[in-house]
Design a protein around this nucleic acid. Structure first.
Length: 276
DNA sequence: GCCCAGGGATGCG
DNA sequence: CGCATCCATGGG
């Protein structure tokens, strides 16, 4: 795989560790479109267009530095997959989702998105987030930006209910009310345990959501979010008996250490796409 | 009508 | 602490 970064585009030749469908459909992001071989990805107020051609992927954006980092292109996924391939029960998942990469997404967007994600399904999560973008985000012309904290502070509980958040409307409203820009800024450089403790103090953020925020919004790869899918597959794939999600998380994180986040994404994607 | 979806808050022992 | 129950909402 060869990556060439130009002024307004990135060219990836022989993309053995980059498949935009794998990346977008593995549940780490909720703002994207896939139409044939063209995909659009949104983060903050930015957009990238990804075209997949035979033996080549082209990423186009006016914010090419942002998306180079966003797609984690300095990271060597070949080495990660080689390491994870040592686990028998991961081989088929890695083969299936070979092009997965863990995105470096915006922290605030991840906090809001994964509060909405709790006990919800991806289709409805997408719809709710799109509603919030259209109602409170900046109009960028052919799309809407994700609303800033300041913009979301203008929302009432009724707006979140109207967005279809159900009982999560109150959680999000409370979190937005209590968050400030300084805290968001400070979170970027806090030690792991302090980040975790602060995020858990937010309404609507529990053990699973905090791990998603840490993984996708703060680049912490040592966490293993256990959701309903991982819960289902746990006993099958690891032959460890427990129904306690906190125990599963601890067991999985000990097993995979700093590769936990990657292992989780391969397994989540494989299982959700192949099992009903 | 029932069950499920990238679960969390709350209360009770 | 651990555990049970409740919580909106749309799709299958």
């Amino acid at each position: 795989m060869k990556i060439t970064k130009l002024k307004n585009q990135i060219i990836i030749e022989n993309p053995t560790d980059f498949n935009i469908v794998h990346i977008l459909d593995c549940g780490q992001i909720f703002r994207y479109e896939i139409k044939g071989n063209i995909a659009k990805v949104f983060s903050q107020n930015k957009v990238a267009v990804i075209s997949t051609e035979p033996d080549k992927v082209v990423i186009k954006s006016t914010e090419i530095d942002y998306f180079y980092n966003f797609f984690d292109l300095d990271n060597n996924y070949q080495a990660i997959k080689t390491e994870l391939y040592k686990y028998d029960n991961l081989k088929s998942a890695i083969d299936f989702g070979y092009g997965i990469r863990i995105l470096k997404n915006d922290l605030f967007e991840m906090i809001v998105s994964f509060i909405i994600s709790a006990n919800n399904n991806i289709k409805r999560i997408k719809r709710s987030i799109q509603f919030l973008c259209e109602k409170f985000g900046t109009n960028m012309g052919d799309y809407f930006a994700f609303p800033s904290l300041k913009q979301l502070k203008l929302a009432k509980v009724e707006d979140f209910t109207q967005a279809g958040l159900g009982y999560r409307a109150n959680y999000l409203f409370d979190t937005i009310k209590n968050l400030n820009e300084q805290q968001l800024h400070n979170l970027q450089t806090m030690p792991f345990s302090t980040q975790r403790e602060f995020l858990l103090s937010l309404k609507g953020v529990g053990e699973k959501v905090v791990n998603c925020i840490l993984l996708f919004g703060l680049g912490r790869k040592n966490v293993f979010p256990v959701d309903t899918w991982i819960n289902k597959v746990f006993v099958d794939m690891f032959d460890i008996k427990t129904n306690n999600r906190k125990n599963m998380t601890q067991i999985l994180q000990q097993k995979f250490n700093n590769l936990s986040g990657y292992a989780q994404q391969y397994l989540f994607y494989y299982y959700r796409e192949n099992v009903k």
